[in-house]
């Protein structure tokens, strides 16, 4: 046994409250009850959280808005720092002069500094090798049943994206076409994506945080801590992307971008959310007066 709550606990509650009735669980809402069990602790099936103080909530939203505005107007030095630090990481990676200069891009009223570098573009034979290699690996991982299904299917998804991309580029190169971007363009896309993530994610997180009975400090931490975490992470990720595209070309860059972009930032947010939820659950569910914290 185990479950959401133990069966023993459920049966105990049931016997305490009478068979299937709590007195205040009336047919429909709003009917008065004279049952002595009316003051019973709200059953988890129908309980809800205490309404929050609207003034505190409004003040929290205001504080979040002010902090976010302050961050937004300071995006320029932040984005410059990201490019500078990525240059530093690239020099640590010891791959020569790759990505050691940057250009300029104005996006959403912010000046960005995308790194300029050469991107490796394979010829038709190169794309053919990517395609054949991808197919071989797909078959191999499809047969490797010893790997747990979620891991195997994630690897297969990445391989499928790689192979799909290389097939597409093979067709394009056979039609005398070429990769649709150069080093500067993909850099520009990356820094714009980072800017958008930092500009919009806190708004989404703030709206989400209003649903749950977090306290003001928890809300502020939940909204802004992911950005603080994401800054060093974006620096390293940027350097790795520049390194990969310079070394291997655009085909592996696509799944890298699509699967390891904001998904990782989001995962960190979910981690933080789960820690905060634990605190909230402890606050509303524990302690001596826990029934007072729930309402029917």
């Amino acid at each position: 046994m185990g479950g959401t709550h133990s069966r023993e606990e459920f049966e105990r509650e049931r016997s305490q409250l009478g068979s299937g009735t709590t007195g205040s669980e009336r047919f429909g809402a709003g009917l008065a009850t004279t049952s002595p069990l009316a003051a019973a602790m709200p059953h988890r099936a129908y309980r809800r959280v205490e309404p929050e103080n609207k003034i505190v909530m409004a003040l929290t939203v205001l504080v979040i808005g002010v902090i976010h505005y302050y961050i937004f107007i300071n995006f320029h030095p932040i984005m410059l720092a990201m490019s500078e630090w990525s240059k530093l990481v690239l020099s640590w990676l010891n791959i020569g002069a790759v990505g050691q200069s940057y250009g300029y891009d104005n996006y959403m009223w912010v000046r960005l500094y995308p790194l300029v570098y050469d991107i490796h573009e394979p010829d038709t034979l190169g794309y053919l090798i990517w395609t054949i290699g991808g197919i071989v690996l797909i078959v191999l991982f499809a047969l490797l049943r010893v790997i747990a299904a979620p891991v195997r299917l994630t690897i297969l998804t990445i391989l499928l994206l790689l192979t799909f991309g290389s097939v597409y580029m093979l067709i394009v190169s056979l039609a005398n076409g070429s990769l649709g971007f150069d080093g500067f363009e993909i850099s520009k896309l990356y820094v714009r994506a980072v800017l958008l993530t930092w500009a919009f994610m806190p708004i989404g997180f703030a709206i989400l945080s209003l649903l749950i009975p977090f306290n003001p400090i928890e809300r502020i931490v939940l909204v802004f801590l992911p950005i603080i975490y994401d800054f060093p992470f974006s620096v390293v990720r940027y350097a790795v992307m520049v390194w990969i595209t310079n070394w291997l070309g655009g085909v592996p860059a696509a799944p890298f971008f699509l699967l390891f972009g904001s998904a990782i930032t989001f995962l960190f947010y979910v981690c933080l959310f789960s820690l905060m939820m634990n605190r909230v659950a402890k606050r509303v569910g524990g302690g001596p007066n826990r029934e007072a914290r729930w309402r029917w």
Binding site: T4, P150, L267, V270, N278, A281, V284
Partner: peptide, 26 residues
Amino acid sequence: VGSATMLDGGRRRTWLLPYMAYVFIF
């Protein structure tokens, strides 16, 4: 899911929320 866990009186189970990403592609 986090809200449901809280309503059910669960606490430590909320720590598993990030692992739901593990089954997303599955």
